[in-house]
Amino acid sequence: MSGIALSRLAQERKAWRKDHPFGFVAVPTKNPDGTMNLMNWECAIPGKKGTPWEGGLFKLRMLFKDDYPSSPPKCKFEPPLFHPNVYPSGTVCLSILEEDKDWRPAITIKQILLGIQELLNEPNIQDPAQAEAYTIYCQNRVEYEKRVRAQAKKFAPS
């Protein structure tokens, strides 16, 4: 494992614990031996107030490669969400998460999670990743928002 990646992720964890947006979660997972795995984080993004996503808490896994922060983490909703920019596998399609697009090593975990929260309610229809959600979003916004509200209710924190 890269010392650069681990040191950056340790800084990220410290900064997150000191200050993070209300309702968001970002925690490194534990290895079988109980030690912390900084390369694999369990996160959760709350649906934004005043949107059909409100009330939901959407679980996301963030996986970092050894060359982080040169390369972005892979962000994957578990379980996958109904959304035009979420692949059926759950992987998020967002330009700041793509090395050859808008990724920059200075982007923080907090910025990534806030960017994904923004994307939930403002899909990028130029870059669809899920045919069904994309089609319904474009053709029947009322039905799309109904499905999103049902999903938010399903993923409401207990």
Rank of each mutant, 00 (worst) to 15 (best):
I4L: 08
A5C: 15
A5T: 08
L6N: 13
S7G: 08
S7N: 12
L9Q: 03
L9M: 04
Q11A: 15
Q11G: 08
E12Q: 05
R13D: 03
W16A: 05
W16Y: 06
R17Q: 03
D19H: 07
H20C: 05
P21I: 00
F22P: 03
G23E: 09
G23S: 11
V25W: 07
A26W: 09
A26I: 07
A26P: 01
V27L: 13
T29R: 14
T29E: 13
T29V: 07
N31G: 07
P32F: 06
P32C: 09
P32E: 10
D33Y: 03
T35S: 14
T35V: 03
M36I: 07
M36P: 02
N37S: 14
M39F: 13
M39V: 12
N40P: 06
W41F: 06
W41V: 05
E42M: 07
E42P: 03
C43F: 06
P46N: 07
K48H: 08
K49H: 14
K49R: 14
G50A: 11
T51I: 03
W53T: 00
E54C: 03
E54Y: 07
E54H: 08
G56R: 01
K59R: 13
L60P: 05
L60H: 05
R61G: 10
L63D: 14
F64T: 04
D66K: 09
D67C: 12
D67H: 15
Y68E: 02
Y68S: 04
P69S: 02
S70T: 12
P72I: 00
P73C: 10
K74G: 15
K74Y: 15
K74T: 15
C75G: 12
C75I: 15
C75S: 13
E78P: 03
P79K: 14
P80I: 07
P80F: 12
P84F: 01
V86K: 08
V86I: 08
V86A: 08
Y87K: 03
Y87I: 08
S89W: 09
S89H: 15
G90A: 05
T91W: 14
V92M: 01
V92N: 00
V92S: 09
L94N: 04
L94P: 01
L94M: 04
S95V: 03
I96P: 01
I96S: 02
E98V: 15
E99L: 00
K101E: 11
K101S: 13
D102F: 08
W103H: 06
W103Y: 15
P105L: 02
T108N: 14
T108R: 15
I109M: 11
I109W: 08
I109A: 12
K110S: 07
Q111R: 15
Q111G: 15
Q111S: 15
Q111L: 13
L113I: 12
I116W: 02
Q117H: 13
Q117I: 07
Q117M: 08
E118W: 08
L120V: 06
L120M: 11
L120F: 06
L120E: 02
N121M: 12
E122F: 11
N124W: 09
N124S: 05
N124M: 04
P128M: 03
P128S: 13
P128L: 01
A129N: 00
A131D: 08
A131S: 12
A133D: 03
A133E: 01
A133M: 02
Y134A: 10
Y134W: 07
Y134C: 07
Y134E: 06
I136S: 12
I136M: 11
I136P: 01
N140F: 01
N140K: 07
E143L: 10
Y144L: 01
E145A: 12
K146L: 14
K146C: 11
K146E: 14
K146V: 13
R147C: 11
V148K: 01
V148M: 02
R149T: 09
R149S: 10
R149Y: 07
A150R: 12
Q151Y: 08
Q151L: 07
Q151F: 05
Q151N: 07
A152P: 01
K153N: 14
K154H: 09
F155C: 14
F155W: 00
A156W: 09
A156D: 15
P157G: 10
S158G: 06
